[in-house]
Nucleic acid binder design. Sequence first.
DNA 1: TTATTATATAAGCAATTGGTTATATATTTT
DNA 2: AAAATATATAACCAATTGCTTATATAATAA
Lengths: 114, 114
Amino acid sequence: MLKQTIEMESAATILKLLGDKTRLTMVKILEHNDCCVCEFVALFQMSQPAISQHLRKLKDVGLVKEARKGQWIIYSLNQNSEVYPFVKHLLEQIQNQNDKLYDLEKKGLRVSCT
Amino acid sequence: MLKQTIEMESAATILKLLGDKTRLTMVKILEHNDCCVCEFVALFQMSQPAISQHLRKLKDVGLVKEARKGQWIIYSLNQNSEVYPFVKHLLEQIQNQNDKLYDLEKKGLRVSCT
DNA sequence: TTATTATATAAGCAATTGGTTATATATTTT
DNA sequence: AAAATATATAACCAATTGCTTATATAATAA
């Protein structure tokens, strides 16, 4: 079995994108849960436009995809992305962020979109 | 066997640092070869101070270490770094850059420091 | 239809980044 | 000791980044 490798250029782009605490946390959360924008807004101490802009960057490189569901837009990892395997490996080495979603659930903010 | 994970904060710092093509290439090269500054200068289309500044950033987080050898300063990956396992995993998924060192060798620029 | 809720986009701005040139320091060679 | 070589640091600058506020759009609820 040959080991898959990613090109330097592509790797640097992805690492730069994930070299931001907010985006990295987002992607780590998306590893196991789909989320809508309002959930991220509740999760991070940050305005809604700031969240939207982070998600846009993730979408621009094809790392996440969106799906409208009523008035909400649900974001999820795009497993078809060329760089998905690379990112998956990365995420597996990062501490899980389940506590964040758990806190949200406790506050009753998780159910809103689902 | 428990899987080792890295903290979000720490991971974001490292990814940001490696989210630069020059630094990522440097580190990938250092994965298998120690190098002095002049070799990197020959390798990249960039001034010596620019190279020094990149190396400094890598050193500041403890990812690389330096050792003086006569008039040269040899840089190498710091395997004792807390984040070394994380970075090692990363590098293993990135295309090797042996061609770059090979080109250097052909030009007779590799031997200079060793 | 109007108000509300969820999201995206645009414009503006301060901080950060990654280069440059100029200069300082350390080592080796002559 | 003087010149050459290797490296680091400082000062500067243009481009990029990541927020902010204001506003637009889309879907739902009243």
